[in-house]
């Protein structure tokens, strides 16, 4: 039902009947979603609709209750053993998770490390890069996000927009194939959103990264995304290319939501 860029290729990410619940509350109900290689997908929806949970599950920050998540053609939450899928052990989880990177609403930079320190930490400790290699890679990425001159600054010395750009560079330094953006501009003053979105735009045009973003910036979603998914009460209520969906939403819920969001701007 979902579109992959190339029908012969495996999707980059596949949610196969994924369910997440907290006790009696079902946050996501039997989610089925394929995301193609290099596809940019925007997830929108009212708060509590489960949209952030989609990213958090894919980053393994939330356990799933049912279903399987696939990344790059292999199961991540599960592994094959004796011909069937069993829950993944930590080693398998880490190996597959390495293909996914995430940027958070509240940046979550390490406050005791400089911008450069933040960007070289995991490449050194996790990937085993030498300090010099990691620094070269980090310098390149900080340059990409326009912060080449802030290398030695601590997070607390940077503006929110700058911190978020460091967080993007930090995530990219792990060379993920899938990048998750979780409301990355929601904690920023309006005048600082632009610089972060600009960086994401640049990433989208220069890299073949698969990108999945939860956002309230409808304008950005419309211009940037290949596909928009509207979540409502734990289900995908409507999805399609942004032009069609914003111009003529098919579902009543989508219409209500878009009307409410557009009115507030």
């Amino acid at each position: 039902m979902n579109t992959a860029n190339d029908a012969t290729e495996q999707p980059m990410v596949r949610f196969d009947g994924v369910t997440k619940s907290y006790g009696a509350l079902t946050v996501l109900d039997d989610l089925r979603l394929d995301i193609g290689r290099g596809e940019k997908v925007a997830i929108i929806g009212p708060s509590g609709s489960g949209k952030t949970t989609v990213l958090r599950m894919l980053m393994t920050l939330e356990r799933i209750n049912d279903g399987v998540i696939w990344v790059d053609g292999e199961p991540m939450t599960h592994m094959e053993k004796g011909g069937r899928l069993v829950p993944a052990d930590p080693r398998h989880l880490r190996r597959v998770r390495a293909k996914v990177g995430m940027v958070f609403q509240h940046f979550n930079l390490f406050p005791h490390m400089t911008a450069l320190g933040n960007c070289i930490e995991a490449p050194i400790t996790v990937l085993g890069l030498s300090r010099r290699e990691a620094e070269e890679r980090a310098a390149e990425l900080l340059d990409l996000v326009g912060l080449a001159d802030k290398k030695e600054h601590y997070p607390a010395q940077l503006s929110g927009g700058q911190q978020q750009r460091v967080a993007i560079a930090r995530a990219l330094a792990m060379r993920p194939k899938v990048m998750l953006f979780d409301e990355v501009t929601s904690a920023l003053d309006p005048e600082l959103c632009g610089e972060v979105l600009q960086v994401i735009r640049k990433l989208g045009s220069e890299h073949d990264l698969t990108m999945l973003m939860v956002t309230h910036q409808m304008g950005f979603a419309k211009e940037f995304a290949d596909r928009v998914c509207f979540f409502y009460q734990g289900k995908i209520c409507e999805q399609g290319n942004p032009q069609d969906m914003f111009a003529a939403p098919q579902n009543e819920r989508t219409r209500q939501f878009l009307r409410a969001v557009m009115d507030s701007v």
């Binding site: 920050l61 979550n108 996790v126 792990m174």
Partner: peptide, 28 residues
């Protein structure tokens, strides 16, 4: 919790996260 989440997103093990990220901050 966001600090732990960042270490997961960077694929660090729990021990790496403790040693490099959590304990240095807790130390203060």
């Amino acid at each position: 919790p966001g600090q732990w989440e960042a270490t997961v997103a960077l694929n660090m093990t729990r021990w790496q996260a403790l040693r490099r990220v959590i304990l240095p901050q807790a130390f203060v």
